[in-house]
Design a protein around this nucleic acid. Sequence first.
DNA 1: AAGAATAACTAAATCGTTTTAGTAGTGTTT
DNA 2: AAACACTACTAAAACGATTTAGTTATTCTT
Lengths: 355, 355
Amino acid sequence: MADSKNRPTKKSPLTGAEKNSSVTLKKLAKVLKLSPTTISLVLNSKPIADSIPQETQNRIFEAARRLNYRPNYIARSLRVKRTHTIGVMIPDLGRRFSSSILGGVEEKLLERDYFYFIGSHGYRPEAIARYKSFFLERCVEGILAIDTPQNQQSFLPVVSISGHDKTKGLTNIELNHQGAALQGVEHLVNLGHKRLAIIKGHDLSPETEVRCHSIVEAARKFGIRVESSLISELTGNDTSPNNGYRAAKKIIDTKIEFTALLCFNDTSAIGAIRALQEAGMRVPEDVSVLGFNDIDTAEFYNPPLTTIRQPLYEMGKLAAETLLDAIADPSGETVKTHTVEPELIIRQSTARVKE
Amino acid sequence: MADSKNRPTKKSPLTGAEKNSSVTLKKLAKVLKLSPTTISLVLNSKPIADSIPQETQNRIFEAARRLNYRPNYIARSLRVKRTHTIGVMIPDLGRRFSSSILGGVEEKLLERDYFYFIGSHGYRPEAIARYKSFFLERCVEGILAIDTPQNQQSFLPVVSISGHDKTKGLTNIELNHQGAALQGVEHLVNLGHKRLAIIKGHDLSPETEVRCHSIVEAARKFGIRVESSLISELTGNDTSPNNGYRAAKKIIDTKIEFTALLCFNDTSAIGAIRALQEAGMRVPEDVSVLGFNDIDTAEFYNPPLTTIRQPLYEMGKLAAETLLDAIADPSGETVKTHTVEPELIIRQSTARVKE
DNA sequence: AAGAATAACTAAATCGTTTTAGTAGTGTTT
DNA sequence: AAACACTACTAAAACGATTTAGTTATTCTT
């Protein structure tokens, strides 16, 4: 006995894949004294199974349950060429922005029996490329790109959230940026602000330019020119408030006067407020600060942030749904762009300009 | 020609799985006029491939690159019974807590060529069960349970972060809670605090009881009894500061006096501070508030949070590494518990008690 | 009573790899 | 010249499902 124990039985360790599928269709067939075909037909309730007597069907169902038979997903995927899996690309898991969207994505996917791989790339082009080939290798059926540049055409359906590439075959879910900027700027103008500063997003985020440009354009409509030295940007691979802190410092260091600061997102607004306070400016008494996204801590910050809300959860759901539809019917007319509407949430980080 | 276009060619749409693997080993073999065996042997650099002349090998590599051949992951998985995939369970993607850990996990996994599925369950037992069976179905090789109850023994390797189940075969990565509580309480006691209140975690989080109990025990060491009506808890499925806000209100509503509040995490501390301020108490002048985790907004909050830092990123890396090791060598001696050390970060939400 | 239709199944191919167990052909011993 | 080793490959089985194309046995027509 010791002998048989020492004998090398199998090289590879028993992995989950192996143990999990210990009860296979073939074994089930042997137990039931039926062919694998019959069982497969019945368990998948194929039309042909109608001709199989209820009694036999019950026997099959019962045995499958009793032996805890679970069809091996891998084997099935190989045969039917569907993986029921999509790949999600995202700059950083740690932002509320990301997770709100992912919440919506997950809900919709689960509803339709899909799962997802996730790759967070910090905007690094080589990481994006790497994840993409990773996804393809693993046979995802579609790709959801969140705030991720998507410049090459893909043979897979791709839905992009807050991407702004106009690559062929791509569906974009994006915010009405003109509307968002207009609401934000109008709010500030109504409070008497004329000298605006901006913290742009990360250099590589597809969202950066649109959002900044929309603000500048909106300001122009109110007869306000945004000085280019009052535009700073987030840099590097840091998504903490620290990044906004640094960007705000750069603006403050110019010594150019401004009364309102429009930030790329709420997190950078939080960092910016710290920088302003350290420089002896009170928010909102001396400077009004406007966030973006309305993450759930925005409301609880001191001061509570005035911000432009994106319906992130909904965008996630919409994106997932669009993608699954495109997968189910690739010939289908894919809408090229879905636009969602922003909402200005007025709290206490903005106030009337003092005079 | 139009005819051939109209003829139904295949029922199923061309999915990624299908198109991606359009260049298969067999086709490659045909092009090279070699057998699939030879090619597989060479591409996987098996020892036997040594007997194949360099020239042939070069031809194979060249053709594989030229035709962009990528072995079909599904087919390979089926054959070798390895999926190089793990499942990660987490209560909520949206917490900095989660994403810091996931960052560490992802780094380690990528390093060792693994990928992961993620399931966020909001502590709902049926969601946990559902994801678990989902994972098994998809043949993950191991499970990483983050802040997730793990009460059934599994035939797969399981590593748990901040879980505290002592289930057989489980490896736990956990904080030195006694040390953490001691540091926190000592800090407050040194500032003169005697009347402590606590916001416990979510009912279903495995972390809740240990953390609260450790604090109560630490307090006892300093001769302080924590009144049970000054202990409130997070409830429901909400991970925003709002949850901490509600919990703090409950404590405030008792009208029992307290000078320090120890919160389950930083997010709930932020909510709690709002509740205190609304009730007319200043932080830290009237009440000191202590957070937990040191998420990256803690430093930027007003007031900046004093908090007990967990090395979340490191814990993620350690957990992933432990899990991969257990997968690689299931017979290996698995350490049952890895303990990591907390660090008290003193900022400005705690202060000397006034007299 | 021959033929068609239906019921109740099943054999074998297939998906795209990996792997085991070879096979020819050449060269080297003894 | 038989035995052996080596080189350069290959055929076929296997992984675990699904699916196509049947096969019996029975019942229904006419």
